[in-house]
Amino acid sequence: MRYLALACLCLAAAACGGDFSNDDLEFLNALPRREDLAAELPAASEGRSGGGLTTRKDKLLVNLGELSQVAGDTDESGHEFNTAVDGLLSLLEHIRNAPPTSREPDRRVWGPFKDQEHPGFDVRFVMERQELRFDYRLEYRRTGEGDGDWWAFLVGSFEADAGIRKGVGALYLDVKRAEQEGFPTGGLFLLDRLDIEYQTKALPTRVELAFTPRGGLTAPTRYTYREAAGGLGEMKFLIPDIDLVLGGRLEDVELTTRWAPDGRGMGVLEVLDGDITGAKYTECWNALGRVTFIARSWDFFNPTEGDRKSCPDFSALDE
């Protein structure tokens, strides 16, 4: 009888507690998700042909009615952008699926755990809050090391503005530090660092991705994605050293593409350096990705082709 009572007490004690926490929800809300940061590409882009972003060597000899090379570039870069975002955010997915290991009023810690994917390393995730600001770190150390040996592979922050993941945030992967610590970085070994900055509190939202190459031999490559009401999207990125027009020099161009949910779009290519520095090329395409309008600022005799009215209204993206 005494053992039965003891067993009942133990059972009752074990049945108490839980994870019913407002603070947990606020901490989780500070972590970005893929749908917050990924580029919302037009549905029609799937299967549409186009050239690679960094290998494009065409000379803008496209004609009306042909498949738009710029549209293809947009899709390609959009997918690459999303792949990079996915890779970074996948590190945070495990955190979402488990309750914190320890809770303090303005601090949550998950772990430490043994990292199953990287044997020999312990991993933990630390979040801290100061009023509306949340800081978080994904930290590693070699198994057996002490508390002072944790180093951060992923570092982020979020300034909340109420709503569901509405606010301003930034996070980066410190690939260089990981390499120094002997931590396997997989396909990231060509980088020193991968940065994301974003704001989701007001339209148009903005996500900026920066790849810092290993050793700082070249300038970081930046992709900026913005999204406005109505599913309008914009991607802006720099393409160095392409042979855009006949001449002795290669061009550095900035490509800004905008698209509507139905697949129509517009690309604006500005030559920052090269044979026709300052020149501007504009191209619009329909839902099938075929060119409907072309404008070349440097072509004196035939500056435009097609109907400009065929271009969608993207004024919501004009700041």
């Binding site: 049945a15 507690g17 839980g18 926490s21 569901i164």
Partner: peptide, 22 residues
């Protein structure tokens, strides 16, 4: 009393939560 409170979110992004106590 033994109380069990639950919070089930429509959005799967947020985990369902539970608390139980005498």
């Amino acid at each position: 009393a033994y109380l069990v409170m639950r919070r089930d979110f429509d959005d799967e992004v947020f985990p369902d939560q539970k608390f139980a106590m005498f």
